[in-house]
Simulated scan of single mutants.
Amino acid sequence: MTPAAERTEVSAAALSVHQWVPAAHKGDAIGDSARRVRDLLRARGHASEIFALTIDDDLRHEVRPFTAPEARRGDVTIFHFALPSPMTAAFATLPGGRVLQYHNITPAHFFADYAPHICRLAMLGRQELATLVGHADLALGDSTYNREELDALGFAPTGVMPIAIDLERITRAPRRPALEKILGDGLINILFVGRIAPNKRIEDHIRLAEHYKRYVDSHYRFIFVGRHDAVPSYYATVRALMEKYQMPADRFWFTGPVPNADLAAFYRHASAYVSLSEHEGFCVPLLEAMAAGVPVLAYGAAAVPETMGGAGVVFTPKDLEFAAEWLGRLIYDDTLRKAIIEGQYARLEAFSDARMQAHLDALLAPFA
């Protein structure tokens, strides 16, 4: 945010502040953030609704269709941009305050060898984003990494407003006894959360497992929670690498999407969280792992070092033997593990509701 955003108290009259998200899916970081922001806005006395082009059935009581006339009647509209959609042209013509929040588009080159249609969609998304230059009163990235992309395109003024995260869905989730019995079978659970996509470099997790098995411990289980059908040819490549290394299939668990209670159980029983992604605009699972008390080992690409904020273990270059050694230390060195977890808990203060309310108050002050 601009300097005004750093103030913790901003007095503003009640406004109608609506949010646009192209697709409302439960468990999606952007949609989850929009609902969190809506609740914080309402708690501040503002009228606030979310409008979407496509809405999951279980969210229809919370999210309204974009065709509703009220979608274009907000005093302020926050448009969450992450892919091309008809919302872009509509946003440019709004009469009220226009706030763009950019959540980043994965660079097209990651998909070139696996999914030409996604590669094309990514290129179109960046082209469409550029059409909004001069048509937003404020352009926000959810990280400085994303803000710098907005600056390079010519947006002004720009700022940073992090994703609003409901960490209680992890910390206060109900127990899952049957799943927890499986996870508590004595193997070391090493967790990753996110879709199986080329930028996440899941193949590097497989290579890391080979180093970990060889130099640290053979009693491991790598767990990948998230969709694995988004880029089928890439998932097939990952599986082929497992066969090449003769990895036992039962030590690699690809769960697909799971409900919040199951996700919390995976975090609860993880000995470490590992991210080897080479492109992240923010990366919510890093903070979820912190909230669950799981030490994080992350490759320092794109916005990852910023999100980590000095917590956990962030490493570069991508030396997987070095990473395997650190992974072993995080799991078995109790003194180090305790210090890392304490540092991670401290980092979460930057994403508290109070901090988020301060961001929102400062954002709305000029429009009041």
Rank of each mutant, 00 (worst) to 15 (best):
I340E: 00
F322H: 13
I340G: 01
M247T: 13
V296M: 10
K318I: 02
Y220W: 07
V231N: 02
T316Q: 10
L287V: 06
P295W: 07
F266L: 06
P259Q: 11
E342W: 00
E342D: 13
I206L: 11
A236M: 12
A323C: 05
V284A: 02
F224E: 03
W253R: 06
G309H: 12
A261K: 14
T316W: 02
V284S: 01
A339Y: 01
G312P: 15
V225E: 10
W326D: 11
H219K: 14
P285K: 05
Y267L: 14
Y245L: 15
D217E: 04
F252K: 05
D262S: 14
D319F: 03
R227V: 08
I206Y: 01
G343L: 02
P317R: 00
L320G: 07
V225W: 09
G328N: 03
Y235H: 09
R227I: 07
A240T: 10
A291R: 03
Y299K: 00
Y332G: 08
A311M: 07
Y267F: 15
A302F: 08
G300A: 02
A230W: 09
Y273L: 12
P259G: 13
D217S: 11
L263Q: 13
I331S: 02
V294L: 14
G328H: 02
P248T: 01
G312N: 11
Y267S: 14
E342Q: 09
A261F: 11
Y245P: 09
E243T: 14
E280P: 08
M308S: 09
V313F: 13
V313H: 15
A298R: 12
L297E: 06
G300I: 00
E280Q: 10
V284I: 05
V294Q: 09
A240Q: 13
